[in-house]
Amino acid sequence: MTQGLDQQHPQEHRDRAILETITQEGRSDYNLVELARLYIRYDNFPGARQIQQDLQAILAQWNLTVEELFTLTRAIHQQGQIYRRTKSGEDIQDWS
């Protein structure tokens, strides 16, 4: 797919700020889960190339493969709720 046909993800601006925070704070359970969530969101998305590159760079910096990231985050999720819940019981993170 050519760059001219790339789409802009509606969450791209907000996700850019999340990636900056992850980069500044470094590896933690919360940041691993956020990285996995963003990886899922942007995997095979036709656009947001810089975010996709940044996700790959963070994985390389943390010496992780995507499979290792997902294994770690599954274990984190099994330990309990990493995200706070609202009064209605909904996750506050937007997975779309």
Results as ranks from 00 to 15, higher is better:
residue 2 T to A: 13
residue 2 T to Y: 13
residue 3 Q to C: 03
residue 3 Q to R: 07
residue 3 Q to I: 09
residue 4 G to F: 15
residue 4 G to W: 13
residue 6 D to N: 15
residue 7 Q to I: 10
residue 8 Q to T: 11
residue 9 H to N: 10
residue 9 H to I: 10
residue 10 P to T: 04
residue 11 Q to M: 12
residue 12 E to Q: 15
residue 13 H to P: 00
residue 14 R to Y: 09
residue 14 R to T: 02
residue 15 D to M: 12
residue 16 R to G: 00
residue 16 R to E: 01
residue 16 R to H: 02
residue 16 R to K: 05
residue 17 A to S: 06
residue 17 A to K: 10
residue 17 A to L: 15
residue 17 A to Y: 02
residue 18 I to F: 06
residue 18 I to W: 03
residue 18 I to L: 14
residue 18 I to D: 05
residue 18 I to R: 11
residue 20 E to V: 01
residue 21 T to N: 03
residue 23 T to L: 02
residue 23 T to I: 00
residue 23 T to Q: 08
residue 23 T to K: 00
residue 25 E to Q: 01
residue 25 E to P: 00
residue 25 E to Y: 00
residue 26 G to E: 03
residue 26 G to V: 01
residue 27 R to K: 11
residue 28 S to M: 07
residue 28 S to N: 02
residue 30 Y to M: 10
residue 30 Y to K: 07
residue 31 N to F: 15
residue 31 N to M: 12
residue 32 L to G: 04
residue 32 L to Y: 04
residue 33 V to H: 06
residue 33 V to C: 14
residue 35 L to F: 02
residue 35 L to C: 07
residue 36 A to L: 03
residue 37 R to L: 11
residue 37 R to N: 12
residue 38 L to S: 10
residue 38 L to I: 07
residue 41 R to K: 14
residue 41 R to L: 13
residue 43 D to Q: 15
residue 45 F to V: 09
residue 46 P to M: 09
residue 46 P to S: 14
residue 50 Q to R: 14
residue 50 Q to P: 13
residue 50 Q to W: 08
residue 50 Q to M: 14
residue 52 Q to T: 11
residue 52 Q to M: 15
residue 53 Q to L: 14
residue 53 Q to M: 13
residue 56 Q to D: 13
residue 57 A to L: 15
residue 57 A to V: 05
residue 58 I to M: 07
residue 58 I to R: 06
residue 59 L to F: 01
residue 61 Q to H: 01
residue 61 Q to D: 02
residue 61 Q to K: 00
residue 61 Q to R: 00
residue 63 N to F: 08
residue 63 N to G: 00
residue 65 T to D: 00
residue 65 T to A: 04
residue 67 E to M: 00
residue 68 E to T: 06
residue 71 T to A: 09
residue 72 L to N: 04
residue 72 L to Y: 11
residue 72 L to G: 01
residue 73 T to P: 14
residue 73 T to H: 04
residue 74 R to V: 13
residue 75 A to P: 02
residue 76 I to P: 08
residue 76 I to K: 01
residue 77 H to L: 12
residue 77 H to K: 11
residue 78 Q to R: 11
residue 79 Q to L: 15
residue 79 Q to H: 07
residue 80 G to Q: 13
residue 80 G to K: 10
residue 80 G to E: 01
residue 81 Q to G: 07
residue 82 I to R: 03
residue 83 Y to E: 15
residue 84 R to H: 12
residue 84 R to M: 13
residue 85 R to L: 15
residue 87 K to R: 06
residue 88 S to H: 10
residue 88 S to L: 14
residue 90 E to A: 14
residue 92 I to V: 12
residue 92 I to P: 09
residue 92 I to K: 12
residue 93 Q to T: 03
residue 93 Q to R: 09
residue 94 D to C: 06
residue 94 D to P: 00
residue 96 S to H: 05
